[in-house]
Design a protein around this nucleic acid. Structure first.
Lengths: 317, 317
DNA sequence: CCATAGCATTAGCATTTGCTCAATCGCTCA
DNA sequence: TGAGCGATTGAGCAAATGCTAATGCTATGG
């Protein structure tokens, strides 16, 4: 720890000299008394450890236009559109950083608030971009269970990662994502540990969620929360997208009779009382985002240019 | 404007692809349909226009230690210590960025506040690092006059530059820094345009100031607010440092009888009601910073490692 | 005390970046 | 219409950076 900390300390210093003071790596090497290669390693360590935060502080007109159009079309209270990298296959690039910035923005406020946190790859990537902050005045509540099918803490439940970065009061949900029966869900939800957390989730001032697909790589299936048979049954019943465990049909209605009766997650907080921000981009998520928007499940969105344009093009379904 | 804006737009996009998406300049060139050199130019334009904000998000132990020691030694409410670049001759490097971040931090708060702004090279450099922000709830008041001796707006009065970046309610002070006589100052201060501004300054919640030397490059003299003779008289009378026009002796007392009776600035806001943050670094400013600290003129400080260490070494006077 | 595994460091090279200078483009004004 | 001039572009090269493979070093266990 001390050694590792000292290393990161040096890395941070090297990165500072490089990025802020504008030294070359040769100069840094001389100043820190190490070889040029070591200086390079320190800088690259700082980058890979996420110590170096870069952001482009300029409102790109096209992104602003798209954001405004989306806000108006879907009556959103919040919408952020980041540039698209035409060559990238990443499904989080840019959106993760922007979501992290928005989370930081909320957590930076002095007045106490309740933040709901969903799950998924995108949200996880966002949380990894968070700075360390101290904000004991806020309460952060997980909307989904965090027990993986094998009994371990679910990897894509991001609240534990978030707790490493942010000092606030955390309320994880010690539940599976999907209970084995409707009755089990009732029992679990009635537990004294769970009920206050559910009540807190309902009172969230701001909520960040991801949007899941229900194709063959559906996160619910890949992470083992549902079986292949259940996935197929959901699709046959018309389910197209998933948000914090709940599955929806193209009209934004909960699909009944398969898994939704057993989902142990909190309901998505009400748009009336909470700002519900979805973070998602990419072609595969398009139907899901559209459902969330048209079904009025969300009132905030972080996405990229390409997805924003597709959302504004009349649906071809 | 439209052309320039379009250019910056492209530059921002190129910089985004470079720094956030991690493309090489060749890839960017291909994606934007320009030559490699043009892509390079766009990225470098974005950097030079200050569109690219880099910050190192890691608390370097040595800086934290110094900051803590300074807070305790001088009972400061706020202290930030940035790394020192041993080779640099800059007197603002790092401190400017850190001060900008702190200003942004205050301006980002939703509850309305009054911010006092002093003058000087360091503060100017800080303001140039500010992001554009919208915060109409805040009021920002200049503590010094902004009329240069030639009648133009004084360059190092930073409030106008700040107004370009930040949308808030600004209260500049249409006065010279130093009036021609005590009587003139009284007259000016009694003006209906001035009095409310002075009252606002006295109520500042947070105040950012620089610290000026009184050597041969004294800003007051270089900028033409005082004559060489006045500078020499001030020095003979024991004046060592200057803050928003006021000159102080080593005991932190106002030097009487030379210029202080004619200084048209607002008084430094009270430490009882305002957080008064000085930003300064470098050997030349050391005596000034020490006076400000020991004379309890300030209760916040942004400086660099080398200066912090010197401040913690018992004075050799 | 020695052997060895694992990690850090170095050297050398390929890639990427930034700079300079000459050429070209486009605009203004006679 | 064309000359003049500033701005923009591209080519080539030098500097800076990042990667890989080989070497050296340290700690641990026999």
């Amino acid at each position: 720890m001390a050694v590792n900390g000292g290393k990161l300390d040096e890395a941070a210093r090297a990165a500072w000299l490089y990025y802020v003071a504008g030294n070359t790596q040769d100069q840094i090497a001389a100043k820190l008394g190490v070889s040029r290669q070591s200086a390079q390693r320190l800088v690259s360590l700082a980058v890979s450890e996420g110590l170096v935060k870069v952001h482009i502080d300029y409102p790109i007109a096209h992104c602003l236009d798209l954001s405004k159009a989306l806000r108006e079309t879907y009556s959103l209270s919040f919408c952020e559109v980041v540039p698209t990298d035409p060559g990238s296959t990443s499904t989080t690039l840019g959106v993760a950083q922007a979501t992290a910035a928005e989370i930081e923005n909320w957590l930076g406020r002095p007045e106490p608030l309740i933040m709901g946190i969903g799950t998924g790859r995108t949200l996880r990537a966002a949380v990894e971009h968070l700075s360390t902050m101290e904000c004991p005045q806020h309460r952060i509540v997980s909307l989904t269970g965090n027990i993986a099918p094998d009994g371990s803490a679910a990897y894509y439940n991001v609240i534990f990662t978030m707790a490493d970065k942010v000092k606030a009061r955390f309320f994880p949900m010690p539940l599976p994502v999907i209970a084995s029966s409707e009755k089990e869900r009732e029992t679990l939800h009635a537990q004294p540990m769970i009920r206050p957390t559910l009540e807190l989730a309902a009172k969230a001032d701001v909520t960040f969620i991801g949007i899941g697909e229900l194709d063959d790589e559906a996160p619910l299936y890949v992470d083992g929360f549902i079986t292949r048979e259940e996935l197929q049954a959901l699709r046959r019943a018309g389910a197209v997208t998933e948000i914090i465990g709940w599955t929806f049909d193209p009209q934004g209605r909960l699909v009944e009779g398969i898994t939704n009766e057993r989902v142990a997650s909190a309901p998505i907080p009400s748009r009336e009382t909470s700002l519900v921000i979805a973070s998602a981009m990419g072609k595969k998520k398009l139907p899901g985002i559209r459902i969330a928007l048209e079904g009025k499940l969300i009132n905030g969105l972080v996405t990229d240019e390409a997805t924003a344009e597709a959302l504004l093009t009349p649906s071809l379904r």
